[in-house]
Simulated scan of single mutants.
Amino acid sequence: MRGFQGVQDPRILAGAETGDDAGVFALHEGLALVQTVDLITPVVDDPYQFGQVAASNALSDIYAMGAVPLTALNVAAFPPDDVPLGTLRAILHGAHDKVREAGAVILGGHTLNDPALKFGLSVTGTCDPRAYLSNSGARPGDLLVLTKPIGTGVLIGAYRSGWLDEDGTHMLVRNMAALNDIAGRMALSREARAATDITGFGLAGHASELAGRSAVAICLWFDKIPVYHEVFTFIERGVNTIITSENRRHVAGSIRVAGDISATEEQLLYDPQTSGGLLVSIGSDEAVGYVEALRNAGVEAAAIVGEVVEAGEPYLDVTRS
Rank of each mutant, 00 (worst) to 15 (best):
D128K: 12
N135E: 04
F25M: 14
K224N: 09
A297M: 13
H96W: 14
G212A: 12
D128P: 06
G66K: 04
L59A: 08
Q35W: 08
R174C: 09
S254C: 14
A67W: 03
A302G: 13
L133E: 03
E266V: 08
H229F: 14
P226R: 02
G151L: 03
D9L: 02
A263T: 08
I156C: 03
R249S: 12
E300W: 04
V154L: 09
E246T: 15
G277W: 04
L188K: 10
L121S: 04
A194V: 14
D9M: 06
G120M: 02
A183T: 11
Q5D: 11
L146H: 00
R320F: 02
R130S: 15
D165E: 13
G66C: 01
S281I: 09
E230W: 03
G202K: 04
D9A: 06
N57P: 02
V239E: 06
E246I: 09
L278C: 03
S214E: 10
F78R: 05
F201S: 10
A102H: 02
R174T: 11
A138F: 08
G253W: 01
N74P: 03
L143K: 08
V99E: 09
L92P: 01
I182C: 12
G157A: 10
E313L: 07
A131L: 14
S136D: 15
S262C: 12
W221K: 10
G23K: 08
E29T: 02
I255E: 07
R139W: 04
G200V: 05
G120R: 08
Y315F: 10
A16W: 01
V280T: 05
R295Y: 11
L33M: 08
F25A: 10
G3D: 05
V231P: 01
G202L: 01
T152R: 02
G283E: 04
R185A: 15
A301P: 00
R248W: 00
P10S: 14
L92E: 14
Y228I: 01
G125N: 10
I243N: 11
E236H: 08
P115V: 09
D260E: 11
H206N: 08
S321C: 15
A195H: 05
R160W: 06
E246W: 10
D142Q: 00
V24T: 14
L27S: 05
S189H: 10
A138M: 13
N240Q: 15
A76L: 15
Q5V: 09
F232P: 00
G202P: 03
E166S: 13
D223C: 05
V308C: 07
I218W: 03
Q267N: 15
A287Q: 03
A207Y: 05
E29M: 08
V216I: 12
V99T: 15
G200R: 00
M186K: 07
S321W: 13
G19N: 05
D97N: 12
Q8A: 06
Y228M: 01
E17G: 06
A258E: 11
P84N: 12
F232H: 08
D38W: 04
D20L: 01
